[in-house]
């Protein structure tokens, strides 16, 4: 169990956020672990690790302003499911991918509902622009607003 009073644990600060696709004010304090969040009633920022069950947060989404999903290694794809599950449950706050977040995974993360990114290593802005403009269409329904190809075909 994490020490809930220690704001150094894990969380990123707004200064660490390189990309943000929303207009509201970022949460100014660090996120707590899922266990800590469930133990206390006043936190509004929580950090989801790959092994956490994002569905545990669903009863509390109204009071959450920031969910950080940690990618300790970019090849661990559990965070993509966590993000989509939260968006499917109606979560509308900031969904921030943190950790080993690389430019080549950015487009898929956007599709899964991430709208902020705090990568361990800063991304090249030109590469970011290219990555986000890469796909003219998408094949699946996901957590973003894009229409799947099948919807365009049968519009």
């Amino acid at each position: 169990m994490a020490d809930t009073g220690d704001s150094d644990i894990g969380g990123t600060s707004p200064d660490d956020v390189q990309l943000r696709f929303r207009e509201d004010e970022p949460v100014g304090h660090a996120a707590v672990t899922v266990d800590a969040f469930l133990d206390q009633s006043n936190a509004n920022a929580v950090r989801v690790e790959p092994g956490d069950d994002a569905r545990e947060l669903i009863p509390h989404l109204q009071r959450i302003a920031l969910v950080e999903v940690n990618f300790p290694a970019f090849g661990d794809g559990r965070g993509y499911s966590s993000a989509r599950i939260l968006r499917e449950a109606g979560y509308a706050g900031e969904l921030r991918a943190v950790g080993d977040v690389l430019v080549d995974q950015l487009a898929y993360m956007r599709r899964c509902g991430f709208d902020a990114f705090a990568p361990d290593a800063a991304l090249d802005p030109n590469d970011v622009e290219a990555a986000l403009a890469r796909w003219p269409h998408v094949y699946q329904e996901a957590a973003d607003a894009r229409q799947p190809i099948w919807a365009e075909r049968h519009a």
Binding site: F74, G75, D76, G77, Y80, S81, R84, Q105, A107, Y108, M109, R111, C112, W135, V138, Y139, Q140, A142, I149, W150
Partner: peptide, 14 residues
Amino acid sequence: RQWSSFHPEFSYLP
């Protein structure tokens, strides 16, 4: 095939 191509959630499976 189309559903699984560039699937955003399932491209970094175990």
